[in-house]
């Protein structure tokens, strides 16, 4: 074998064969990939200017108020074309002297999953299959081992079942959130009112935060969300319930679009048993403070020092 590096004679034919061979390899590869077997997702008609604008859009915290306004208008145009309905994207700011906290009475919770229903109706999650922020665990009485929990208890059997209690779990909005630490691009952070939010336009979809979360609160859009027009909630917030896109993380935001306007989160409103207590931890007269100071409360996985602002209590 003679080493050849710049021998060019008689190469025409050989080169052609090589090229054809490599082309065939590439073509066979394309065939073997079995691509385009899935339907094209509905992305809406977004103008080139908007596409460029949203591509180069900066991090929420680095945008000026004008830039945020532009981003919101881009989103509203996109939603309009995608869902044929006017979606209002607000940007409520955290209220001063407010730190949100949540308490849940496990002796009241009956496992109806009404909170889950209320949440998905409010927060524009992907439907069918449903993406849900709240998971209600059916637990055996007499222990507190999550591994024996059953989140899939059937909707055809009445609850509460004898010998069971129910433990709804959602984002605990930790004071020391491991997800925020894990995010490589600061796309998720804790706001001054204690709500851990996500900039859906900055998230790169690496799922580091989902791995870091001890409460399994973070849910990923594995594909373009399926949000039928009749299920769209048109009153939305930029950092909370505006419709998401594929490839980004989302989770409970204590319904920031509601709670920052003084209203109750959707899960609290939907709960038919009054098991859910939401309020301002900085207000000593608030219900949540009464519960924390007068009831026997516990938090999940406290040993991890994440300092959840989501407590459980019982009568």
């Amino acid at each position: 074998m003679k080493f050849t590096n710049n021998n060019l004679p008689d190469l025409g034919r050989r080169k052609a064969i090589r090229l054809v061979g490599m082309g065939a390899a590439v073509g066979m590869g394309a065939l073997a990939s079995g691509s385009s077997s899935l339907a094209t997702p509905n992305m809406g008609n977004v103008s080139l200017a908007d596409q460029v604008g949203s591509f180069f859009q900066d991090h929420y915290k680095r945008m000026s108020p004008e830039e945020i306004q532009e981003a919101i208008e881009r989103l509203e145009r996109k939603y309009k074309s995608k869902y044929q309905v006017e979606v209002k994207v607000g940007d409520p700011k955290p209220l001063p002297d407010v730190l949100f906290g949540y308490a849940l009475n496990i002796s009241k919770c009956q496992g109806y999953r009404e909170c889950v229903k209320g949440c998905t109706a409010e927060n524009n999650q992907s439907k069918d299959p449903n993406l849900e922020y709240i998971r209600v665990l059916e637990m055996d009485r007499g222990q507190m081992n999550l591994e024996t929990a059953d989140p899939y208890y059937p909707s055809t059997e009445e609850v509460p079942k004898p010998g069971k209690f129910y433990l709804p779990i959602q984002c605990h909005h930790c004071e020391n959130p491991p997800c925020v630490k894990a995010c490589p691009v600061k796309a998720t952070w804790k706001e001054p009112d204690g709500i851990v939010v996500i900039d859906y336009n900055w998230c790169i979809g690496c799922r580091m935060c989902a791995n870091a979360c001890p409460y399994w609160a973070r849910k990923f859009n594995w594909t373009e969300p399926n949000l039928p027009v009749d299920t769209v909630n048109t009153q939305t917030g930029y950092l909370s319930n505006r419709p998401r896109e594929k490839g980004v993380m989302e989770k409970c935001t204590f319904c920031a679009q509601r709670s920052r306007e003084g209203r109750m989160p959707a899960c609290q409103e939907a709960c038919p048993t009054g098991a859910r207590v939401f309020g301002n931890l900085l207000d000593p007269d608030s219900e949540i403070r009464y519960v924390l100071e007068n009831k026997n409360v516990f938090r999940l996985k406290e040993e991890l020092n994440t300092e959840p602002k989501f407590w459980y209590y019982s009568d």
Binding site: R113, P129, R135, D140, P151, Y152, T156
Partner: peptide
């Protein structure tokens, strides 16, 4: 009173849940 709960959670699109062998620790 006891009543029927809302729909059970879904798996990701294209995946399915097999909950048949869920173990319950003996008390």
């Amino acid at each position: 009173r006891a009543r029927l709960p809302r729909k059970e959670p879904d798996p990701r699109l294209g995946l399915s849940i097999d909950n048949s062998d869920k173990h319950h620790r003996h008390q």
